[in-house]
Design a binder for these strands. Structure first.
Lengths: 249, 249
DNA sequence: TCAAAAGTGTTCCACATACACCCATGA
DNA sequence: TCATGGGTGTATGTGGAACACTTTTGA
């Protein structure tokens, strides 16, 4: 740590949030339309400058509230990665710390103070380049999606996409959407319910749907990652995604 | 991204490097002794302020050179995580971006401009609190070690701890040191050589040691993560560490 | 009665584990 | 010739993949 004064350089620091949800059977990302330069009119991840005396998660939470109208943190939020000061903002060196939010579908307000049209967009289309993203947000989104995909393998965070009580089929729909697979319902059921420390039976049943009613589950207490505390719960053995999807071999 | 001027706050940004290596059968971390306040006299991770116009990896590489006398990057370097401006430096808000370096044992110079006694220390002892670390470096080290441990499972980065050509036994010694295990030599041999896209036989043999000479291997071209390019090579199926070591269950 | 979805049982096979055994070197 | 470590073969067990089959609802 070099403190041989002269004064160290100072940088503006932003937080960006890749908020992901599953709806309509697909992984969706929260994007806003920029109302100001640079990249006015482009889509972008919600985010903004860190204020003095703020922590990173704190800043990310605040920006989410400001730009998407989210009253309280609707899911699981963790730091993703930093992208760094050189060459990513036409105004100069800006460091951004990207975050990942996994949440059940929540409503977003139409407009905030400096962003409009917050809304959900299918990740598949966004990554395919159908919308032009500001800054290096396309790269950030791509990294975030890969992180989310691998998180589902070895952590109970798939449940972060579900409401507090959910059926196995709803959880499986999350995995299918995030991994873009069609997992076998029977094997998934056995694996999910058989993994110790993952799910807890509420005793209640779903109703109203076609077919036989399904048991409702919640996250087991020891896996409670939604509230920040212990985000380190691990599924052992992991729920492996089919090898074809890990990007090689 | 909130650019509703007033000017955004600016923060000093540092990079810290958790440089890990394996020697004497144990995982070791590179620490320096601080010559200046704050935490004068404490041990710390090498690191320092990011300069204008620098990228993060660039800054980490430079600091490693300055504080440990490393001419060129001796191994695999990747970003670990950022630790947030609030409450980690007595001088005020400082954001640090921690990095992880996995490298074969390399010599470090005794002193730099603002750090002395750069040297390798057993991770086990450091995590046990035998040395007092500056700032939140103990937390950073702990996160780094956990990252390194899981990296070995699903990536070919164990080889980053080895010289360019190595025997299976040397590679196994890396896994044993990082995971604090004693893997079965025979099964490890089969698994390592049998994993497609991991190792490549050089045709050469080791000599001089006791026992039968061992074949020398190198990282397969498609797994070349040492040169930054494709750090995303994946071992499939992974080399699982014994369940007892994942910290639960 | 039929379609649809939940949930169980069973078979098959890949692979991790454990370990017997042989090979090639230095002392 | 013995000790040491390299490397192969093989039996056993666990768990994932595939799928037949039963259960329980809505239409």
């Amino acid at each position: 740590m070099n403190t041989s004064y002269p004064e160290p350089a100072r940088f503006p620091v932003t937080v960006d949030v890749v908020a992901l949800t599953v709806s309509a059977g697909a992984l969706q990302v929260l994007l806003i339309t920029r109302l100001i330069e640079p990249f006015k009119g482009s889509m972008a991840l919600p985010g903004g400058f860190v204020l003095p005396g703020e922590g990173l998660i704190e800043a990310a939470t605040r920006e989410l509230a400001e730009e998407a109208g989210v009253a309280e943190q609707p899911g699981y939020l963790e730091q993703l990665q930093s992208y760094g000061p050189k060459g990513r903002d036409p105004r100069g060196d800006v460091l951004t710390v990207a975050h990942l939010l996994l949440a059940p579908n929540f409503p977003v307000i139409a407009a905030g103070s400096d962003a409009a049209s917050a809304g959900w967009y299918p990740v598949k289309d966004v990554l395919a380049g159908e919308y032009s993203l500001a800054f290096d947000h396309a790269e950030i989104l791509s990294d975030a999606v890969e992180r989310a995909r691998s998180k589902l393998e070895y952590s109970p965070l798939g449940a972060a996409f579900c409401t507090p009580e959910f059926t196995i089929a709803q959880l499986r729909a999350v995995y299918d959407a995030v991994w873009d697979t069609k997992l076998d319902p029977r094997n998934f059921h056995r694996k999910a319910t058989g993994t110790p420390g993952f799910l807890e039976d509420t005793g209640k049943m779903s109703t109203g749907e076609a077919g036989r009613p399904a048991a409702l589950f919640r996250l087991a207490p020891q896996a409670h990652t939604t509230r920040a505390a212990c985000a380190h719960a691990v599924l052992n053995p992991p729920l492996m995604r089919p090898a074809a999807l890990t990007g090689q071999d």
